[in-house]
Nucleic acid binder design. Structure first.
Lengths: 233, 233
DNA sequence: TCAAAAGTGTTAATTCTACACCCATGT
DNA sequence: ACATGGGTGTAGAATTAACACTTTTGA
């Protein structure tokens, strides 16, 4: 942070600073990302991550909130910093540094989802993504990797589920995110042993088979850790 | 990355972008960080992380290299991005975003170390740090955490050691970084089983006890993973 | 009474932990 | 021959993986 030459502090030319968001949603046993169809050049009509420029009086989180609120109609969402992207030519308009964040949301809580905003907003299955503008594909890929490792030691899964959920639903979420098969019974034991969830005593009614118990996340628990066995394909 | 209002691209006011470096070195069974004594306001005469402003034609890594070369006389060093720091008031001069990087170096390779530069540069034991300017203490703390977790799944230890080293030296490095005691014999087995290192057949000569075998890192190996047992104190 | 998913238990294999013992070297 | 680390082995504990069986529900 030492200044190395004699120019006054504000005479330096600075790159623009954008925040780009990888918004993950989970629904119908599918992990999806929210993409925006750009209306302006560059990358007009291309799918891109939602993003925006940092204002001078905003923190990154402020910018995230603003994007989520104004462009996607979402509020009170889990976001976490991912990485900063600095390739010289990543934006044809000039030098733009992007700070990537990822968000985890439960699409059920935001009707917005289905594209109710003026912008063309759409959920895409993370395994079936379209071409994307800028370097957004690689931002997304890093975010998915991050989510995959994070979920193995940090209880963030609940951000994607309803308040109450069954072990099977949690199990499916893990299989979907990690894209592997996990033994149902071993998974259950690990989750319960880790005190990851709390049994509410309630049951999910109205199924045509046995009514599973409903759990909620144990918010006391900060970190957990269980090995997920990755079977040979 | 969508632009939300009508101003021309370059009319936006942007924060300054600094790169701050947490340079780790390992020597004499001590993990140290390199700090600079600032000659200018703000935080004149305070210890700070080496850093500098991003130039318009530089990537973050370019800036890192420039800082390492010009301020510390180092070259060809391992660096990796840590996190970006955005508190509104983190720099009294104005809005400055800092992108934190950490570097791992073998102090034996750079005589610079002992403070040969014009600037007042000094190694500090990571467990005995002075007060630091800006938010550099928290940048450092995050870097140490990152190093501690990284070393458990990524073979980065070799950046801190000589080309050839003994298992005992590697063992001491791990104990020092993680700040725990690790069973010598179990550590050896895990390292060897993970194919983390390659036996060179050579031995370290001139010791007053048995001459230990010299190893080098297995550069093929991308990731490994072994659990380090953390004994109750 | 059947299908389908939920819940519980068990065994064998694997991995870890906590050690003990021998080896090579300089003094 | 002895003090000082270096190198190797092993038994018991703990954890994990791969299973089979029973239970609850709606149709």
């Amino acid at each position: 942070m030492t200044q190395t030459n004699q120019k006054a502090f504000h005479e330096y030319q600075n790159p623009s600073l954008a925040v780009d968001l990888v918004v993950f949603g989970y629904h119908d046993n599918t992990l999806s990302v929210l993409l925006l169809n750009r209306k302006e050049e560059p990358f007009k009509d291309c799918w891109t991550l939602p993003g925006g420029f940092l204002q001078m009086d905003e923190t990154f989180l402020d910018t995230c909130s603003r994007i989520l609120r104004t462009k996607l109609g979402m509020d009170g969402v889990f976001v976490e910093q991912l990485y900063s992207f600095d390739a010289l030519n990543r934006d044809p308009r000039g030098r733009v540094i992007a700070v990537g964040y990822y968000a985890l949301i439960n699409p059920a809580k935001f009707q917005v989802v289905a594209g109710s905003m003026a912008n063309d907003v759409k959920w895409f299955n993370v395994r079936k993504l379209p071409a994307m503008g800028f370097d957004h594909k690689s931002i997304f890929q890093l975010a998915l990797q991050r989510l995959q490792s994070k979920i193995q030691y940090d209880p963030v899964g609940f951000e994607l589920l309803d308040e109450l959920f069954t072990i099977t639903e949690l199990h499916e979420l893990y299989e979907c995110i990690l894209h592997i098969t996990i033994d149902r019974r071993n998974f259950r034991r690990k989750i319960l042993d880790a005190a990851y969830v709390i049994n509410t005593g309630m049951k999910r009614e109205g199924l045509k088979n046995r009514h599973p118990e409903l759990y909620r996340f144990n918010k006391q628990l900060k970190k957990h850790s269980f090995q997920i066995s990755i079977p040979a394909e």
